[in-house]
């Protein structure tokens, strides 16, 4: 593993640093609390809709449709979680490389026998494991609901797979932003900027000449999440979730190369 030299050590340190950081704990608390509130209110809403649907079926016979409540809850909850992640990921990623530059610890990495790919990979993995840890309780909410709701587990499992892939893409993009900034706050806000561009890029698609429309829709992150959400894994979406992070990891790698060649001046 010469190519990723140093990656494992950096990954472990990064992960460890989240668990001693007050910011990370605050983020965990807020995220889990918000997810819990969203889940309960979504569940309450669809349960009520479900009861209404039951009543209509009993009243009008076959003209009413039974609601698949767990599927509805899963769909809404996954949508909300995806949106919340867009605000969480830049905070998780903001300090990954910018803080190393500001604190001067980049010098330690640069003067150690560690490759740029190792630095990039270590940072990405550390933050990604933390993100997956954050997503565990929301996953359990769904799991418990489906367990008692004797629903098929397939839909929400693919939904969470979609969330995991999407957050990897968001993380790669914001890691790159962190690699070109020297200030956490700037990094976080620029990260929001980049993610929002890729979230809303398909909004004006209808206004564009038709040959560009497909391309612009393809670039949008949430477009590719949609299929996972309804239990479909398509090659087109997988393709996107491989190439999108790969592109930003490549940019991060290039930024690290540039730091090595130009030399950071620690303040």
């Amino acid at each position: 593993m010469r190519f990723l030299r140093g990656g494992w050590a950096i990954c472990k340190r990064e992960l460890h640093s989240y668990f001693v950081s007050p910011v990370a704990y605050a983020l965990l608390a807020i995220f889990w609390l918000a997810e819990g509130i969203f889940f309960v209110s979504i569940l309450g809403y669809w349960a009520a809709q479900g009861r209404n649907a039951d009543a209509r079926v009993q009243e009008f016979g076959a003209e009413g449709n039974l609601l698949n409540v767990p599927a509805m809850v899963a769909g809404s909850f996954l949508d909300v979680t995806a949106l919340v992640l867009m605000f969480v990921v830049p905070i998780i990623a903001m300090g990954l490389l910018s803080e190393e530059k500001r604190r001067g610890t980049m010098d330690l990495l640069l003067t150690s026998p560690v490759s740029n790919a190792g630095i990039m990979w270590g940072k990405f993995c550390g933050a990604y494991v933390f993100l997956l840890f954050m997503l565990t309780p929301p996953f359990l909410f769904q799991f418990v609901m489906d367990f008692y709701g004797d629903n098929e587990f397939g839909t929400f499992v693919t939904g969470f797979l979609g969330l995991a892939l999407m957050s990897a893409s968001m993380l790669a993009a914001t890691l790159w932003v962190s690699s070109i900034t020297k200030n956490q706050v700037v990094s976080a806000f620029a990260g929001y900027g980049v993610l929002m561009v890729f979230w809303f890029i398909d909004a004006p698609a209808n206004l564009l000449p038709s040959i560009y429309q497909d391309g612009v829709r393809w670039l949008s992150i949430h477009n590719h999440f949609g299929d996972f959400r309804v239990g479909v894994i398509s090659g087109r979406d997988l393709n996107y979730f491989v190439w999108f992070p790969a592109f930003f990891l490549f940019l991060t790698y290039t930024a690290l190369e540039s730091i090595r060649w130009r030399g950071v001046r620690s303040s």
């Binding site: 050590a9 460890h16 640093s17 604190r103 001067g104 980049m106 003067t111 150690s112 026998p113």
Partner: peptide, 30 residues
Amino acid sequence: KSRVGYLPEVPPLYPEMKVRSFLKFVAELK
């Protein structure tokens, strides 16, 4: 790099880490 030990003007330290675990990390890194 394997032959040089470097102390920059600002010592490269992770403030949240404990001294021993920081040094363990550096040992692995080096």
